[in-house]
């Protein structure tokens, strides 16, 4: 296993009040690859993911210890600019969460809040580029003023990805991005991730073992707040070193 590390998670502990949700997690996330996080429900996958862009800040009573280093900076320090962090580390959620506004406004929102609205033509080019990247441009180019909630769920999720790409992040976090989609839409999104992998470091949480096997290069298996095993996806699925991992991926789980 040799790769360039993009995110370095070191001895991360997280507490929801008294509850110890992440226990001493150490993980090196490889650059320009897809890393999958798998594990049973409630093991802390989402929690770990949400540490990387500090989304857990929004929850009362969360306490974190340890370090998460991105670009030689520990982003858990209080002085971190979370606005810049979240711009650089985009997030796609479980349910497509497009705003109840036009497609155009959904996309422009990010540009507006980061004061990146350019001239009309430049903005239009940027938007076109991102919609092309997620395969929506040809379908939607004439209806950008339509309310985004009228799109199909798959299109909504693609739009959510486009909304993130527009801010030119380097890292993208995806929390079960396909769980609201049907199998065919799921395959489409996975294909999209494969294309985007060239340019972005991605971490995807998934319940779906086949999805992890298909769509990721590296996989981490979590259990009860601990990272049990991490390695190349093929090896995790064919020759896991831990018994727990093997039990989980073979489906023998108590």
């Amino acid at each position: 296993m040799s790769f360039e590390t993009r995110i370095s998670i070191e001895n991360l502990n997280l507490f929801y009040g008294e509850f110890h949700a992440l226990k001493n997690v150490c993980l090196q996330v490889p650059k320009n690859n897809v890393t999958a996080l798998i594990g049973p429900s409630g093991c802390g996958k989402s929690t770990l993911l949400r540490c990387i862009n500090r989304m857990n800040d929004l929850i009362d009573g969360v306490r974190m210890e340890g370090r998460i280093v991105i670009d030689e900076q520990n982003i858990l320090t209080p002085g971190t600019d979370v606005v810049a962090l979240r711009k650089n580390v985009g997030m796609v959620f479980q349910r497509p969460n497009v705003f109840d506004q036009s497609i155009l406004n959904n996309l422009k929102f990010g540009l507006r809040i980061h004061r990146q609205m350019r001239s009309k033509n430049e903005t239009k080019d940027l938007i076109q580029k991102c919609l092309e990247d997620v395969g929506l441009w040809d379908v939607l180019k004439d209806q950008l003023r339509k309310n985004a909630r009228e799109l199909s769920l798959e299109q909504q999720q693609r739009l959510c990805i486009a909304r993130v790409l527009l801010l030119k992040p380097e890292i993208i976090l995806l929390d079960e991005p396909c769980s609201a989609l049907d199998p065919i839409a799921t395959l489409h999104i996975e294909e999209l991730l494969r294309v985007l992998r060239e340019r972005y470091t991605m971490v995807i949480v998934t319940h779906n073992m086949q999805q992890a096997a298909r769509a990721s290069d590296y996989t981490g298996f979590m259990y009860m707040g601990q990272l049990v095993e991490f390695g190349v996806t093929r090896e995790i699925f064919t020759a896991p070193r831990q018994e727990l991992t093997e039990n989980y991926i073979t489906g023998h789980f108590g």
Partner: peptide, 25 residues
């Protein structure tokens, strides 16, 4: 809640989220 999460996830501040997302919604 998911609208707010989306806004924060894109790097919006509390105020931007209120003004541009919560109020219109």
């Amino acid at each position: 809640r998911m609208y707010k999460e989306a806004a924060y996830g894109l790097g919006a501040t509390h105020w931007q989220t209120l003004w541009r997302i919560v109020l219109p919604a």
